[in-house]
């Protein structure tokens, strides 16, 4: 009897794995497969015209942060790479911050509209998403370039005498990324604000909390899951952004994504590109770890 039950259980377990197999294979090939290839490539030698040569080399990883002086052969930090890392982190952080500062009030505004209106407002937020990223980026380009709309209007109003140089600056990249990723911040915050019981806000006012205190002590803590999700959704793709810094930053304001692309293209250094990709992955993971930890302890600190 016990034996029969046991064999029945193991049989059920086997069929369960069998049924899961297609999903597992797809997951393995689609997620782990490419990653493993990238890891392997990062430890190989670069081919002369791109591609790789199948012999082990740590040059790829070595070049991520270090470089050999062209003349003396002296080892030194790869300043160019480090400044690109720093710029990527800084711009991604600022993008998350700006989208939060704009996105939170936007989400709150939509969540407090009558139910019927909310869908229309959400549609307006989502519509830009239907357009190609490249086209949206060029729209920003059209706005901020020297002969662009903003400069023309300012000139016409007589506020400025000559066009402001906005294109190919960090400001341009930041503007572009904040615009492109804003919906990714608004959507999750809206989702948590929409579920918010507005009687809690009345309860806050009733218990002597001013508007600011209600926002800080009641609304914000309850919207926090949405804010966390939103900032991750904005921060992660910002770090690896490629199109926006390329179009709006020109050749001067490179970000990690552009640096990686450079290695696979003109640079003809696939192992370095692979190593940089993995470095980006590591940066994202460390940043998320620190972020989630910080948010978590803050919560415990209140309790």
């Amino acid at each position: 009897m016990a034996n029969a039950t046991l064999s029945h259980v193991s049989q059920e377990r086997r069929s369960r794995w069998l049924l899961l197999a297609p999903a597992l294979i797809v997951l393995f090939l689609a997620a782990s497969g490419p990653l493993i290839i990238v890891v392997i490539y990062s430890f190989l030698t670069a081919g002369d015209y791109g591609g790789i040569v199948w012999s082990f080399s740590s040059d790829g990883w070595f070049s991520v942060v270090l470089q050999r002086d062209f003349f003396s052969g002296e080892l030194m930090l790869a300043d160019a790479h480090l400044s690109i890392f720093w710029r990527s982190l800084k711009l991604s952080f600022l993008t998350a911050l700006i989208t939060f500062l704009i996105g939170f009030p936007t989400a709150y505004f939509i969540a407090t509209r009558p139910k019927r209106q909310r869908d229309i407002w959400m549609l307006l937020i989502i519509i830009p998403f239907w357009t190609n990223l490249l086209i949206r980026t060029f729209a920003i380009l059209e706005l901020i370039r020297a002969e662009g709309t903003i400069n023309l209007v300012l000139l016409w109003l007589g506020i400025i005498d000559e066009p402001i140089q906005m294109l190919f600056t960090e400001f341009a990249v930041l503007t572009g990324m904040a615009y492109v990723y804003l919906p990714l911040m608004v959507l999750p915050i809206y989702a948590s604000l929409e579920r918010l019981d507005f009687r809690l806000i009345e309860a806050g006012y009733d218990l002597y909390a001013t508007r600011w205190q209600v926002l800080k002590r009641v609304i914000f803590p309850l919207a926090k899951p949405g804010v966390i999700a939103g900032s991750i959704l904005v921060f992660v793709p910002s770090l690896g952004a490629y199109v926006t810094p390329r179009v709006l930053g020109g050749g001067k304001q490179l970000m990690l994504g552009n640096l990686i692309e450079l290695q696979f293209g003109q640079g003809r250094n696939w192992p370095l590109g692979a190593a940089l990709s993995l470095t980006l992955l590591a940066i994202v993971m460390i940043a998320l770890f620190i972020y989630v930890r910080a948010v978590g302890t803050e919560e415990r600190g209140h309790g």
Binding site: D197, R199, L200, E202, A203, V218, L222
Partner: peptide, 8 residues
Amino acid sequence: FQSYALFP
């Protein structure tokens, strides 16, 4: 409040 409206 009718629904208590306690802060969750």
